[in-house]
C-alpha cells in the first residue's frame, strides 16, 4: 500500500485557477503559532505573525516527508519571519518559502489575507 496521492505530492503541478477561499476565523489562529487548513487537496500551513499578518506556506516538510510545518515554532532570523520544522528544525522563510538552512530547498508560498475577520487563502 502506498499513499497514492500524486496530486498532494507535487502541489505546483496542479494547474487550477481557483480564487480566494475562506478557511477560518482570524480569531481561531493563535498569535505567533501555526495551524493547518485543507484547500482542495492542498494542505496549507497558516501562521499569524507578530505584526498581525497571516502568512501561508505548504504544510509538507520536504526534509522529513511529513505534513507538519504548521506545528513548528514561529520566530525570526535577522529580519525574516520564520518557522522551524518540528521534525529536524530546518528554518523556512515565511515570506519566500526558502529554507534558510539549505539553499536547494524551498516550500510553496500561498497568498493569504484577512477579510471581515475571516482568513482567506488563494492556491494557484
Amino acid at each position: 500500500m502506498t499513499t497514492g496521492r500524486p496530486d498532494v505530492l507535487e502541489p505546483g503541478a496542479v494547474e487550477t485557477a481557483r480564487g480566494w477561499v475562506p478557511v477560518c476565523d482570524y480569531a481561531a489562529l493563535t498569535p505567533e503559532r501555526g495551524a493547518c487548513v485543507l484547500v482542495g487537496p492542498h494542505q496549507v500551513a497558516l501562521f499569524r505573525t507578530f505584526d498581525g499578518r497571516v502568512r501561508a506556506i505548504g504544510q509538507l516538510d520536504p526534509f522529513s516527508g511529513a505534513y507538519v510545518l504548521s506545528r513548528g515554532i514561529v520566530g525570526s532570523r535577522g529580519d525574516r519571519a520564520t518557522v522551524a520544522s518540528p521534525m529536524h528544525k530546518q528554518v523556512f522563510d515565511l515570506e519566500t518559502g526558502a529554507c534558510l538552512d539549505d539553499p536547494r530547498v524551498r516550500v510553496p508560498v500561498y497568498d493569504a489575507r484577512v477579510r471581515d475577520g475571516r482568513v482567506e487563502v488563494r492556491v494557484p
Binding site: E32, T49, F50, G72, I73, V74, G75, S76, R77, G78, A81, T82, A84, K89, V91
Partner: peptide, 10 residues
Amino acid sequence: RGRGCDVCKP
C-alpha cells in the same frame, strides 16, 4: 531582540 526562535522559545 527580534521575535525569538526554536532555540530560545522552548
